[in-house]
Design a protein around this nucleic acid. Structure first.
Lengths: 160, 160
DNA sequence: TTTCCATCATTATGGAGTATAACGATTGGC
DNA sequence: GCCAATCGTTATACTCCATAATGATGGAAA
């Protein structure tokens, strides 16, 4: 006995195994699993794209404006489940970045119609494959079929 | 001859159909679906339990302390993916509520060992079936088998 | 036409969750 | 005894999400 262990670095005790605690009471709660999963995706997003100045919320704006040009600001906010005051700040940043163009709706001068600038469209088309690849990296333990199932089941939790 | 319509409230035009916009570019992104799903569960939690002073994070503490009595504060924080400074605030509230008991670890007087008080244990046992019922209400569009599949796939997104 | 209310966006503000840096107290190897 | 690592704490800041109040515009009714 008494074999001297490798002692990777001197003057430091062995890292305690930390005796992983029992997580089973939370394992069956969808709320807890959702929080952990979203933290994973969110962290990966920021690790990969913070240099571009793009956040998940801003990418969602790019995606919806790409598919829905000339949409009203309030309708976009409703679709993304963002309150109007927060949409104001989001769009102020994106117009300052030159990604989004706002113009008064001639038929209703209270409203703004939104569309992507050419720079916004180019950024969306450049980012989309990278973001999809990042998400599949986070889900690397799922088969493509399992990934599709996950997306489909998650969609059933949100209102139609 | 021009039958007067019900006109639920006078002086108000019909609610505009709002022309739902195309969400398909985001439908395949797991990050977006996770955000919407978590918002659903989080909102339901607060609607149902805000009166009890219990938040999702506090319930998670109750659950882990119930299954892991006398765990170190730092180990609990690590298991819940909460940073130590935030765990301090969380436990300060719960000890003030009389739900958690903290005592110095005699074998390591820097550390605190945590356990539920009888009131904490009683609250955990009372809340658990109510919270599980609330989560299944949020997931009412999923069969039990689909719900189990969702939990299992979500768990695969988080590190083991 | 004038009046009144609804709509749309904005400003101001606050709460909750999460992050880092710095600090005091304690521990244990040298 | 010295010194670095550990454990918890304080101070602080940033992001996300929410409500209330305001200004501008639109539209229907008096």
């Amino acid at each position: 006995m008494s074999t001297t262990q490798p002692a990777a670095s001197p003057r430091r005790r062995a890292a305690p195994p930390a005796a992983a605690l029992d997580l089973s009471p939370l394992a069956g709660h969808v709320g807890f699993q959702l929080r952990l999963a979203q933290q994973q995706v969110f962290d990966a997003f920021h690790r990969g794209f913070s240099a571009t100045g793009i956040t998940p919320a801003r990418y969602a704006v790019l995606a919806l404006l790409h598919a829905n040009p000339d949409v009203q600001q309030g309708h976009l906010a409703e679709a993304l489940r963002v309150k109007p005051p927060n949409m104001v700040a989001l769009l102020a940043e994106m117009t300052a970045q030159g990604l989004v163009d706002r113009q008064v709706d001639a038929a209703n001068r209270r409203a703004y119609l939104l569309r992507l600038t050419p720079a916004g469209r180019a950024l969306y088309e450049k980012l989309t494959p990278e973001i999809l690849a990042m998400e599949q990296q986070v889900a690397h333990r799922l088969t493509p079929a399992q990934y599709a199932t996950l997306i489909r089941l998650l969609a059933k939790l949100s209102p139609a």
